[in-house]
Amino acid sequence: MNGFVKTAMMTTALITLSAGAALLPVAANAQDQGYTIGIVEQQLANPFFAKLQQAAVAKAEELGLETMTAESQVAGDSASQISAIENMINRGVKGIVLDPANAFALVPIVQQAREAGIYVVTTNTSLDPADAADASFETDNFQAGVLIGQWARAQLAGRDAHVAMLDYDLSDKTAGARHNGFLEGFGITEDSPELAGSALTQANVETGQSSMENLLTSRPEINVLYTINEPAAQGAALAIQQLGGEVIVTSIDGSCAGVRSVADGEIGATVMQFPTNMGELAVEAIDTAVKGGEMASGVNNSGTVLITDSPVDGIESQTSAWGLENCWGE
């Protein structure tokens, strides 16, 4: 064994040791600060919420934090979330990631939590007012609507527009923002003659299908369609297939099933949301704040990406192949 190798080995050993020594206090620190955070989701039967929760838990583990999790039982079930947050306050968590089931109902309990010194970050959708929580990481649904509106306008290439809209309950914050964003991006208003018709769906395939059948029967000239989400768009595609017509179908969500419909040509374009980003960003924000770093604040966009295989100039987009690698759900 020559001197060079010996020196190299010694150096390596020394570096390893000193690195280990440098790490030790950090590890001890982490144990000191191995605090608990609460993660309160909406019903995990929905793959979107499930993905968000998984991402938050994984990020917390990575940062060496303990987690307490809870979920609402059905859509809009704020009562379960409130009891969960009460338990978390008692338990002395330092931060809470909350996906509020209702924008108003959770405000008082979040205020209690913050008074107890807990840093609360909302994900997916914010409270009303949004600053009732310390910060929020969510899809800018208005921006998502604008993107598909602009894309549909560009696809028409100057032809006359006959727009149909398949909505979900417009008093729902997300549904309203998507709807208004689309109108803005497409460059029309509720009163424009270009708006051929709209219908309320339950954001599923079945109601998307019958609503589109009725709209297409009365206005066969419909050539642009906005849908609240991809299942509604898939239902509409069935109606279009049966009744005929050339319709530019747009949607929002970015589920894997939805991206596959883009690849099949049933949906022209959709906007992908990023539940993983929401969960990770929220936990990072809590960790930074608890460790005395810069506190995140306000409503932060967790990302909106237009997915289409017919890109247009001036609107950034990704292909369905990219979409399939980054989508959520099965």
């Binding site: 339950q202 599923n204 395939v205 079945e206 299908q209 299942p231 239902g235 069935l238």
Partner: peptide, 16 residues
């Protein structure tokens, strides 16, 4: 009938 009309077995269908 539902499968014939909408060829998708969807747990969120027909809630009402």
């Amino acid at each position: 009938q539902a499968l014939g009309r909408t060829p998708i077995a969807d747990p969120s269908a027909y809630q009402l």
